[in-house]
Design a protein around this nucleic acid. Structure first.
Length: 442
DNA sequence: TCACCTGACACATTTGAAAGGA
DNA sequence: ATCCTTTCAAATGTGTCAGGTG
């Protein structure tokens, strides 16, 4: 840690962001991610590598999206400006890596890609995609949880990592032409729009009569080539920076903790800054370690599509920066005390079987309340088979803040049902929702 | 009027089944 | 019968664009 300012310890787990150079290139301009109703992949996509895990211990790996602040933005004259308060947060969803749970050796043997993670603006999405608001800023947050299966996740120690350069603005259409150009240049699926490519449609459909019609068109892309000089990026968020100097401040922060961002906790709400971005830097924690609280209403999504695990060796982005990597190790272990939780439990540890101690209590974990899309009325009983290759884990989702219930672990209401369902295995719809935690994310 | 969203579109890559050969 | 490679069509992922919406 002393040797590497980019890393700090939490336990001994180190997480390294792959394609850092590409991420930084985007971040310098102001990364935008398209969100659509059917769901859109991220580009660059989240790809990390892990070290410091116990070879023989099982871990679950998750990603969720955290609001960067409490504002809504607008793109105005080549820069982002604050356009008011953020809209109420959509249902919080967490994307579970399809390999989960897997041994530490598995996670560490190669890069872990979240290529198939999709973002949507459809708050009624039934596919388990991560729901975001357009024109809002987010950053992905990675959680590594030592747990044999999802049922024990809530008792397990999890460690959280974020990378400042992965911050992005969710949009339904690209605002910054420089971002468009970067995407086209680096995303293989967009090769057809590259200047050297055939690019038939672009040229054929251009309407020279209306050059102003779309300021964000390829015409402007050419301009961006020249404007990619150092300094234009600072202006990308000029409005924001001008007001708050927030981004500039963040650039200096190599690794900060985000203490208030308890992934499953109600404190998430508090973590969303609604005050000035220039206020106290609440993102001072980039990694935390906590005991996961008991479930009540958290919901799990699972997709069989994840049986087709995204190729960790996807070429996307890798060609850009095989060298660029940024890593964080968790720093000071932080244990969130959970109401009614046995605080005498051992503190965070990479080796500790604390989540396995005693008979595993699945009560509350499996409150099947959600049927798959198109299968209304069907209750999915087969929550999770940790050793089944047929039913890889998919995504979980949680309710929005409005649905947050104060921590009240293991209420009898759902425990009976939960235990009952936990032993069912059978056909699973494409997507299912399952409650997992008593805390929502927000 | 304007900012934002949506769906169709062309082009690209990825995926997986089928065919063929060793 | 099995394995491997090649081929090819379908599925999927892109940004663009015109039009819709509030």
């Amino acid at each position: 840690m002393a040797a590497c300012p980019d890393a700090y310890l939490q336990g001994s787990i180190r997480m390294t962001l792959e394609d850092t150079d590409l991420w930084k290139t985007f971040n310098e301009i102001g990364t935008e991610m398209i969100i659509t109703k059917p769901g859109r992949r991220m580009f660059p996509h989240c790809k990390v590598s892990l070290s410091g895990l116990l070879q023989c211990a099982k871990y679950i790996f998750l990603v969720d999206m955290v609001p960067e602040d409490g504002f809504r933005y607008k793109w105005n004259k080549e820069k982002w400006e604050v356009a008011g308060k953020a809209e109420p947060q959509p249902p919080c969803r967490t994307y579970l890596h399809p390999d989960s749970p897997a041994l530490g050796s598995h996670w560490m043997k190669q890069s872990i890609s979240f290529l198939k993670l999709k973002l949507t603006n459809n708050t009624l999405d039934q596919h388990g995609h991560i729901i975001l608001h357009s024109m809002h800023r987010y950053h992905p947050r990675f959680h590594i949880v030592q747990a044999d299966d999802l049922f024990s996740v809530r008792w397990s120690v999890f460690q959280t990592f974020t990378f400042p350069e992965t911050t992005f603005t969710a949009v339904t259409a690209y605002q910054n032409t420089k971002i468009t150009k970067l995407k086209i240049d680096h995303n293989p699926f967009a090769k057809g729009f590259r200047d050297e490519g055939t690019n038939k449609k672009r040229h054929a459909n251009k309407n020279p009569a209306c050059p102003e019609k779309r300021a964000k068109t390829p015409d402007a892309l050419n301009d961006s080539k020249d404007s990619s000089s150092p300094g234009f990026c600072q202006s990308s968020y000029e409005g924001y920076e001008g007001e708050e100097g927030y981004l500039a401040k963040r650039k200096d922060v190599v690794a900060v903790k985000e203490e208030q961002y308890s992934p499953w906790g109600a404190e998430r709400q508090q973590g969303v800054r609604t005050d000035s971005p220039a206020g106290a830097d609440t993102r001072d924690i980039y990694s935390t370690e906590q005991l996961v609280p008991a479930p009540a209403s958290y919901q799990l999504y699972r997709a069989h599509e994840h049986a087709k695990s995204p190729s960790p060796s996807s070429s996307i982005g890798s060609s850009i920066s095989g060298s660029g990597r940024r890593s964080f190790e968790s720093r000071v272990p932080e244990i969130a005390s959970v109401p009614d939780h046995d605080l005498s439990k051992p503190g965070p540890s990479n080796c500790g079987p604390q989540h396995l101690a005693g008979p595993q209590d699945y009560s509350g974990v499996l409150n099947m309340t959600m049927a798959q899309a198109g299968k209304s009325g069907v209750i999915s009983h087969h929550i999770y088979s940790p050793y089944s290759t047929e039913q890889p884990l998919g995504q979980w989702s949680g309710p929005g803040s409005a649905q947050y219930a104060p921590p009240h672990p293991l209420t009898g209401d759902y425990s009976t049902q939960a235990v009952h369902h936990s032993y069912h295995h059978g056909n699973v719809g494409e997507w299912s929702q399952y409650p997992l935690f008593s805390y929502s994310c927000w």
